[in-house]
Design a binder for these strands. Structure first.
Lengths: 195, 195
DNA sequence: GAAGAGGCTTAGAATAACTGATGCATGAGC
DNA sequence: GCTCATGCATCAGTTATTCTAAGCCTCTTC
């Protein structure tokens, strides 16, 4: 038994675009540019030999084929997401422990202050730690926010540009323990930091 | 609603490897090397934070997590494959019309002779044509086997090395109409040619 | 104990993906 | 009815991922 599977990343772009009814918003969710989403969807359409969206200047609409295709794709993703939740340890319900390296200017960034004082989120606990990715390995920490991406082999990395502070934009690196990256709390954390 | 989705191409490698119980056979199915499958599976395991296979020197075995994860992934792929079959035109049951460009030495290659004489497959019809990808655009042909990959913009390309002939190996390019690439008949054709 | 099969690892090469700029079309605001 | 803002498409260039090829190790078979 083999399957005829279209480009899977194109499916992800398609599903997100259909959910938002916008390439731009889908792109935000997927942390890429609208152009990338556009290209993925186009590649998918080419592979299928069918148009999935009707494009007008300021909006997109599903075609008949797109409307017909979408529910199954969504179902498939739900099945995968559910199985992943069940199989991968993730956080098993506990809060995400975020370390904020001493090199970062917490004071300049409201969201960091709120995370440390637990006012930002009920599922993320921030605290100041020394700048050492080894803290992720021995279980004390789930994610570490720092300024450099050195000695992070095997760890998941997100490049963050934090806004909202008085000093304008502050770039940072969020290093995450394998198995945590991608789960709900991690996605929320990234969204909070980028806000 | 957003999903926690692991690397989707890793899932595909995982499913194929579990089905064959072999990285090598999975690699053949996916038209890559075993190393590539190994890397995909490893990346997936890292993302999940769980081992899916137990590796021994001559075989792989599913771990408990892998055994638990597999059925859902398989279900998801079946859903996608079914929806794709239903939505994408594909061949709609007719035979795949393969053109063999005059530049190719049909005589030297048994499989080509058998395809032209309809003895190789009941769902593929081979015939000799002039070497022009435009034949794919105006509907007369589904795929074209030729020696060069020129002027194939927007078309799907497979690099084939045909064996079995008296003259040893013969490299060729299979150019396929969008919407046909990936469907069963196309996969079978590629497999036949590479055999 | 040599040969062979299967999986792992790695560097480097090939490929795919992403970005950022630009252009176009549409609708909103004045 | 201009002008502006928004959103999608496309392109070239860059970046990042993915793949291959080759070597290594272990176990099995003869």
């Amino acid at each position: 038994m083999t399957y005829r599977l279209p480009p899977l990343n194109g499916l992800r772009a398609f599903e997100a675009a259909a959910r938002h009814m916008s390439f731009k918003h889908a792109a935000d969710e997927l942390c890429v540019t609208a152009g990338a989403v556009s290209q993925h969807v186009k590649a998918l359409e080419t592979a299928l030999g069918a148009k999935l969206f009707r494009r007008s200047a300021r909006a997109i609409a599903l075609t008949t084929e797109g409307r017909q295709y979408l529910p199954s794709i969504r179902t498939a993703f739900e099945v995968i997401a559910k199985a992943t939740e069940a199989t991968a340890p993730g956080l098993r319900g506990r809060k995400l422990r975020l370390g904020i390296a001493r090199g970062l200017d917490e004071a300049a960034c409201p969201v960091l202050r709120r995370l440390v004082s637990r006012k930002e989120s009920t599922e993320i606990v921030g605290s100041r730690v020394k700048d050492d990715p080894a803290l992720l390995a021995d279980g004390g920490l789930d994610a570490l926010l720092r300024t450099s991406d050195e000695s992070c082999a095997g760890l998941h990395i997100d490049r963050i540009v934090m806004g909202g502070g008085d000093t304008g934009w502050m770039p940072a690196i969020l290093v995450t323990r394998p198995g945590i990256a991608g789960c709900r709390q991690h996605r929320n954390l990234v969204k909070l930091l980028r806000a």
